[in-house]
Amino acid sequence: MVLEARGLTKRFGGLVAVSDVSLTINQGEFVGLIGPNGAGKTTLFNLLTGFHRPSAGTVVFKGEDITGLKTSGRVHLGLARTFQIVQPFPELTVSEHVQVGLLTNKRKKQINVQQEIEEILNAVGLVEKSNDLAKHLSLGQLKRLEIARAMATGPSMILLDEPFGGLGQHEIAAIQELITDLQHKGVTILIIEHVLKAIMNLCQRVIVLNEGRILAQGTPEEIINNPEVVGAYLGKTDSGQLKKVL
């Protein structure tokens, strides 16, 4: 078990965005987090990575209680993430993004920085762009850059927030390949996706969030046949239609 959340709750004024969520993720696992818009998925990520302080509950990472730890501290422990809306440094080049990520990398004493940058850029397919400023990249490239920067920090677990959002079929395939590679390297992955289809074949387990609560979890197969999930998405139990949407 690499990550564990116990009773996580987040209130924004009267709104309970995340309500008493407990979950565990095992080493090397590939887990999907789905749910309708506004279900609290991004908020849950913010709680796990320290962007928000939980109203209640604890987060344990690699056996250490990190509930009070700053985001930077969590990154140093090996917990990386990407944002649903990309957050690049507009005035830095692609390779500089990887470089600054490497500054936090635990293994930085043993690694050859230049070689590492090349390896990562190769993996995300941005080698030709390595000297371009981030502000000149396309959305698909930025999404990959976001993952490259996260990889550079040397994470043992990555949280990906809708990495396919807004992308075309071709770009989606490229990123799917990239995160499969990551998993093969032993990185634990928790991925938010609005559309289950895109991660059906990747995930070993899927967690469904609805109105801040965990509605169901299980294999992708179990999830798309779960009438409660269907209800949450469509307001009616018609798994035939649901399969199309998901």
């Binding site: 700053k70 930077s72 990154v75 990386a80 993430r81 440094f89 500054l103 920067r149």
Partner: peptide, 25 residues
Amino acid sequence: TRFGKALRMVSQQQHGAYLVGIDVQ
């Protein structure tokens, strides 16, 4: 300096700075 670089990154993109492990605060 490293501090200077971190400062410029926070200035450019605060969330990004968090993600590469900079103590933004």
